[in-house]
């Protein structure tokens, strides 16, 4: 009987150990927070509906070295919970699919006054032609909007062999819940 009583203590010890172990290995969450939120992120023009795909208003033919254009993209949170998001980008040759390193793409938390360059804190860029991973996380509140400025510029030392190429630029805004 006394042994049984002592064993029953294991109930507390067991849960204590499980709880303690778990708190070593994971982020604390209480029962009330164990609910499935919905997350959704969209991009679009300022003031317009945001969707999963948006065509940036930076395009056109006859780009030559030194040309640069900038436009504003609005990131919106249409989910039920605040989410952090990151921005990733690729710049590729449309035909070969290979990275095209002469077009610089800059994403800034700011604005553009002249339509050719962005001001504000730089979130993501490829000064050497290669993006170093994705941008740092930024938190977006429910129904919140962030205006980010996107700038393309063709390097002045772009070789003449690049003439006539079509260059695809893709920015991916990724919202994650629970992971960086």
């Amino acid at each position: 009987m006394q042994v049984k009583a002592l064993l029953s203590l294991g109930l507390l010890a067991g849960f204590g150990a499980v709880s303690t172990l778990a708190s070593w290995t994971g982020e604390a969450t209480t029962t009330s927070e164990l609910s499935a939120a919905t997350i959704s992120i969209g991009v679009g023009e300022s003031g317009a509906a945001a969707g999963k795909d948006f065509v940036l208003p930076i395009d056109g033919a006859n780009w030559y070295p030194g040309v640069s254009r900038a436009a504003i993209v609005t990131v919106k949170n249409a989910g039920s919970t605040p989410v952090p998001y990151t921005i990733g980008a690729t710049v590729t040759d449309h035909i070969s699919g290979q990275p095209f390193t002469w077009l610089r793409v800059k994403v800034a938390f700011g604005s553009t006054t002249d339509g050719t360059s962005c001001t504000g804190e730089v979130l993501l860029d490829n000064p050497t032609g290669v993006f170093q991973g994705t941008s740092a996380q930024r938190e977006l509140a429910v129904d919140g909007e962030h205006a980010v400025c996107v700038e393309y510029s063709l390097q002045t030392d772009t070789p003449g062999t690049a003439q006539g190429k079509v260059v695809d630029v893709k920015l991916t805004f990724t919202a994650t819940l629970g992971v960086s």
Partner: peptide, 28 residues
Amino acid sequence: SIGSAVKVGSTEAAMVVNAEAKSSVTLG
């Protein structure tokens, strides 16, 4: 144990969604 373990750990099986903004430019 009770004092130190008032919280239960969790694992967040992270949810991920994304949206894309893209365009193409043609070099002259």
